Lab assay of single mutants.
Amino acid sequence: MQAFVKTLTGKTITLEVEPSDTIENVKAKIQDKEGIPPDQQRLIFAGKQLEDGRTLSDYNIQKESTLHLVLR
Results as ranks from 00 to 15, higher is better:
residue 37 P to G: 05
residue 42 R to G: 06
residue 57 S to D: 08
residue 49 Q to G: 07
residue 13 I to E: 01
residue 32 D to N: 11
residue 45 F to P: 00
residue 49 Q to V: 15
residue 26 V to P: 00
residue 48 K to I: 14
residue 57 S to W: 09
residue 50 L to K: 00
residue 34 E to H: 08
residue 19 P to T: 08
residue 55 T to M: 10
residue 24 E to R: 15
residue 40 Q to Y: 09
residue 47 G to T: 04
residue 32 D to F: 12
residue 72 R to P: 11
residue 3 A to D: 01
residue 56 L to R: 00
residue 1 M to Y: 12
residue 65 S to Q: 09
residue 5 V to K: 01
residue 41 Q to S: 04
residue 60 N to W: 05
residue 1 M to R: 04
residue 35 G to N: 08
residue 10 G to S: 04
residue 4 F to I: 09
residue 24 E to L: 15
residue 11 K to H: 11
residue 53 G to H: 15
residue 46 A to D: 13
residue 27 K to N: 00
residue 51 E to A: 08
residue 7 T to C: 10
residue 53 G to L: 08
residue 2 Q to F: 14
residue 64 E to R: 07
residue 8 L to P: 15
residue 1 M to P: 02
residue 8 L to I: 13
residue 59 Y to D: 00
residue 64 E to N: 15
residue 15 L to E: 00
residue 50 L to V: 04
residue 56 L to Y: 02
residue 48 K to N: 10
residue 8 L to F: 13
residue 31 Q to W: 15
residue 7 T to R: 06
residue 27 K to A: 02
residue 51 E to Q: 11
residue 49 Q to C: 13
residue 29 K to F: 06
residue 10 G to R: 03
residue 3 A to T: 12
residue 27 K to T: 02
residue 2 Q to A: 09
residue 55 T to Q: 07
residue 42 R to C: 14
residue 17 V to D: 00
residue 68 H to E: 10
residue 70 V to T: 09
residue 26 V to I: 13
residue 28 A to T: 10
residue 50 L to M: 09
residue 41 Q to K: 01
residue 50 L to T: 03
residue 64 E to L: 10
residue 58 D to S: 14
residue 43 L to R: 00
residue 24 E to S: 13
residue 16 E to Q: 13
residue 70 V to S: 08
residue 57 S to N: 10
residue 40 Q to D: 09
residue 46 A to M: 14
residue 72 R to K: 14
residue 20 S to I: 06
residue 35 G to L: 04
residue 57 S to R: 13
residue 10 G to H: 04
residue 18 E to P: 03
residue 49 Q to K: 09
residue 66 T to R: 06
residue 62 Q to V: 14
residue 41 Q to R: 01
residue 26 V to Q: 00
residue 41 Q to D: 01
residue 41 Q to C: 06
residue 28 A to K: 15
residue 26 V to R: 00
residue 59 Y to P: 00
residue 51 E to Y: 08
residue 4 F to T: 07
residue 31 Q to V: 04
residue 58 D to W: 12
residue 23 I to P: 02
residue 71 L to Q: 08
residue 1 M to E: 03
residue 69 L to P: 00
residue 22 T to N: 04
residue 55 T to H: 06
residue 55 T to N: 05
residue 57 S to I: 08
residue 55 T to F: 06
residue 58 D to N: 05
residue 19 P to V: 08
residue 39 D to H: 13
residue 15 L to K: 00
residue 31 Q to N: 10
residue 9 T to W: 15
residue 54 R to G: 05
residue 10 G to F: 04
residue 36 I to R: 02
residue 23 I to D: 00
residue 52 D to W: 03
residue 17 V to R: 00
residue 65 S to G: 07
residue 25 N to L: 13
residue 31 Q to T: 10
residue 20 S to D: 11
residue 19 P to N: 06
residue 16 E to R: 10
residue 65 S to F: 14
residue 21 D to V: 03
residue 13 I to F: 12
residue 52 D to Y: 04
residue 65 S to R: 06
residue 46 A to R: 15
residue 18 E to M: 14
residue 58 D to Y: 15
residue 54 R to E: 05
residue 13 I to W: 06
residue 5 V to S: 01
residue 69 L to S: 01
residue 45 F to C: 04
residue 61 I to Y: 04
residue 45 F to E: 01
residue 56 L to D: 01
residue 31 Q to F: 15
residue 4 F to V: 08
residue 34 E to M: 15
residue 43 L to G: 00
residue 16 E to V: 12
residue 28 A to G: 09
residue 58 D to G: 04
residue 18 E to S: 15
residue 49 Q to Y: 14
residue 14 T to G: 05
residue 33 K to A: 13
residue 48 K to M: 13
residue 15 L to S: 00
residue 31 Q to M: 13
residue 4 F to Q: 05
residue 17 V to K: 00
residue 60 N to D: 10
residue 41 Q to Y: 14
residue 8 L to W: 15
residue 60 N to Q: 09
residue 32 D to G: 09
residue 2 Q to N: 10
residue 34 E to D: 05
residue 55 T to S: 08
residue 6 K to M: 11
residue 9 T to Y: 14
residue 68 H to V: 13
residue 11 K to S: 07
residue 51 E to I: 09
residue 20 S to Q: 10
residue 63 K to T: 14
residue 1 M to N: 04
residue 4 F to C: 06
residue 19 P to C: 07
residue 39 D to M: 09
residue 11 K to V: 08
residue 60 N to E: 08
residue 25 N to F: 11
residue 52 D to H: 06
residue 57 S to C: 05
residue 65 S to H: 08
residue 38 P to K: 15
residue 2 Q to M: 14
residue 14 T to C: 09
residue 28 A to R: 15
residue 25 N to H: 12
residue 11 K to G: 07
residue 66 T to S: 06
residue 42 R to K: 11
residue 66 T to D: 05
residue 6 K to T: 12
residue 36 I to P: 04
residue 21 D to P: 01
residue 66 T to M: 09
residue 33 K to P: 02
residue 27 K to H: 02
residue 50 L to I: 04
residue 71 L to Y: 09
residue 9 T to K: 10
residue 57 S to G: 11
residue 59 Y to I: 04
residue 58 D to P: 00
residue 56 L to N: 00
residue 65 S to I: 09
residue 55 T to K: 10
residue 71 L to S: 08
residue 19 P to F: 08
residue 47 G to A: 04
residue 40 Q to S: 09
residue 12 T to K: 07
residue 51 E to V: 09
residue 10 G to E: 03
residue 54 R to N: 10
residue 32 D to Y: 10
residue 40 Q to K: 12
residue 4 F to M: 06
residue 72 R to H: 12
residue 56 L to Q: 00
residue 52 D to I: 05
residue 64 E to C: 11
residue 35 G to R: 06
residue 39 D to L: 09
residue 46 A to W: 09
residue 62 Q to K: 12
residue 5 V to G: 01
residue 1 M to Q: 04
residue 33 K to H: 10
residue 7 T to L: 15
residue 2 Q to S: 10
residue 28 A to S: 11
residue 44 I to C: 12
residue 15 L to F: 07
residue 63 K to A: 15
residue 22 T to C: 04
residue 13 I to Y: 06
residue 54 R to L: 11
residue 42 R to W: 11
residue 2 Q to D: 05
residue 14 T to W: 08
residue 52 D to V: 05
residue 5 V to H: 01
residue 59 Y to A: 02
residue 24 E to W: 15
residue 69 L to M: 08
residue 44 I to R: 06
residue 41 Q to W: 06
residue 49 Q to P: 11
residue 45 F to S: 03
residue 26 V to S: 00
residue 28 A to C: 09
residue 19 P to H: 07
residue 56 L to V: 07
residue 50 L to G: 01
residue 7 T to M: 15
residue 48 K to W: 08
residue 45 F to M: 06
residue 29 K to P: 00
residue 14 T to D: 05
residue 3 A to Q: 05
residue 46 A to H: 14
residue 59 Y to E: 02
residue 51 E to T: 07
residue 7 T to G: 06
residue 61 I to A: 03
residue 49 Q to M: 13
residue 47 G to Y: 05
residue 3 A to W: 05
residue 58 D to I: 03
residue 54 R to Q: 09
residue 25 N to D: 12
residue 60 N to T: 05
residue 60 N to G: 13
residue 21 D to N: 07
residue 2 Q to V: 15
residue 56 L to A: 02
residue 48 K to T: 13
residue 20 S to K: 09
residue 70 V to I: 13
residue 68 H to N: 08
residue 46 A to P: 01
residue 16 E to N: 12
residue 46 A to T: 05
residue 71 L to K: 07
residue 39 D to F: 11
residue 6 K to H: 13
residue 52 D to M: 05
residue 62 Q to E: 11
residue 70 V to Y: 14
residue 71 L to M: 09
residue 39 D to C: 11
residue 27 K to C: 02
residue 32 D to S: 12
residue 7 T to V: 08
residue 33 K to D: 03
residue 50 L to W: 02
residue 70 V to A: 08
residue 72 R to Q: 12
residue 55 T to E: 03
residue 71 L to D: 06
residue 14 T to L: 12
residue 8 L to E: 15
residue 49 Q to R: 10
residue 68 H to P: 02
residue 64 E to S: 10
residue 38 P to S: 14
residue 70 V to R: 11
residue 2 Q to T: 15
residue 19 P to S: 09
residue 7 T to S: 06
residue 14 T to V: 14
residue 35 G to I: 02
residue 21 D to E: 09
residue 66 T to E: 09
residue 18 E to W: 13
residue 67 L to D: 01
residue 29 K to H: 04
residue 21 D to R: 02
residue 8 L to T: 13
residue 51 E to L: 11
residue 49 Q to A: 12
residue 60 N to V: 05
residue 33 K to R: 10
residue 54 R to M: 13
residue 56 L to H: 00
residue 43 L to W: 01
residue 66 T to L: 10
residue 25 N to K: 14
residue 45 F to W: 10
residue 48 K to D: 06
residue 47 G to F: 05
residue 59 Y to S: 02
residue 66 T to V: 14
residue 57 S to H: 10
residue 53 G to S: 11
residue 10 G to W: 04
residue 8 L to N: 12
residue 36 I to C: 04
